[in-house]
């Protein structure tokens, strides 16, 4: 199921109107953003897969920051055990689809944002529309906010095949992980499969190990921060100039509040990004 709302356009021509200039003034004040950066955010399209602990907060940050278009994808319904950390939802939402509820909430929080919600699991076909807009010059990003390893592998493979930049965050217990890769501007950093091949044994999930809400919030905030800076650093044709945030893998220890960074390297024999294949839907 796909549901869209179409708010008024944020901008006319190439300047912010007075209302939006006031709304986004604290961002525009930053030399790294300015009016041009704010317009770039307004022209961006971010796909958020998984509207749980990570995705519901990333969606709020990006929509409220002025990102022009969001696609929200999640097949899950709101459960009572989500409420301590998924603050966009309330008791009244229990049993309703997360993507649809998030879309309704964000309409009020961020009226400038055009939101599409998919009440399904992730499927690469959902990226076709994104690719069309990318060809038309829109800056695009995918955020992996899902809660299982298999879907993370599928999203990674889809982004590699579609040449879409991916910002991925995860958290379970007191361990968080975050990375950003882009097969166009920084192919030497590889992909998720280079780090964790598909047959990797994985035991860390929130449902089996538990998690504290603020830990999830930290990872979602960092993921949103990386996403915004990548969008601000992209040129209008989305060529993606080499960005210092690309090609790193960060780990967060929520007990000691410490971050560790490592450089990503591509596995030349990677089944996903090691051998480039012709992609029918890109031609």
């Amino acid at each position: 199921m796909q549901v869209m709302n179409k708010p008024d356009a944020i901008t006319e021509c190439n300047t912010l109107n007075d209302k939006d200039f006031m709304r986004y003034s604290r961002q525009v004040l930053l030399p790294e953003v300015g009016e041009a950066g704010q317009l770039r955010l307004a022209d961006a399209h971010v796909v958020i897969i998984g509207i749980g602990g990570l995705g519901q907060l990333a969606a709020q940050y990006l929509a409220c920051a002025g990102v022009g278009e969001l696609t929200l994808i999640d097949m899950d319904k709101v459960e009572v055990s989500n409420l301590p950390r998924q603050l966009l939802f309330s008791d009244a939402d229990i049993g309703l689809n997360k993507a649809l509820v998030a879309k309704e909430r964000l309409k009020f929080l961020a009226p400038n944002c055009t939101i599409t919600a998919y009440e399904t699991s992730f499927n690469i076909k959902q990226l076709y529309g994104v690719l069309q807009k990318k060809r038309q010059g829109k800056c695009t990003l995918v955020l992996d906010c899902t809660d299982n390893f298999e879907t993370r592998q599928l999203i990674n493979r889809s982004c590699v095949e579609a040449y879409l930049p991916l910002v991925s965050a995860s958290i379970a217990a007191f361990s968080g992980q975050l990375f950003a890769v882009d097969q166009i501007s920084f192919p030497s950093s590889g992909c998720y499969h280079c780090i964790f091949p598909a047959h990797t044994r994985v035991s860390h999930s929130c449902s089996t190990q538990g998690v504290l809400g603020p830990s999830v919030g930290v990872m979602a905030s960092m993921q949103s921060l990386v996403a915004m800076q990548l969008l601000l650093g992209m040129d209008s044709r989305c060529d993606g100039a080499l960005h210092p945030l690309l090609g790193h893998f960060w780990r967060f220890d929520a007990k000691s509040l410490s971050w560790t960074s490592a450089k990503l390297t591509r596995d030349p024999y990677c089944d996903v990004c090691g051998v480039r294949k012709a992609i029918p839907y890109l031609t």
């Binding site: 998984g50 749980g52 602990g53 990570l54 995705g55 992996d144 906010c145 899902t146 809660d147 299982n148 390893f149 993370r152 965050a169 995860s170 958290i171 379970a172 361990s175 968080g176 992980q177 780090i195 964790f196 990797t200 044994r201 994985v202 035991s203 860390h204 999930s205 929130c206 449902s207 190990q209 998690v211 999830v216 780990r251 560790t260 490592a262």
Partner: peptide, 10 residues
């Protein structure tokens, strides 16, 4: 060396 496992939750 730093060894760590995949974290997939979200």
């Amino acid at each position: 060396l730093e060894l760590f496992s995949a974290v997939a939750g979200g």
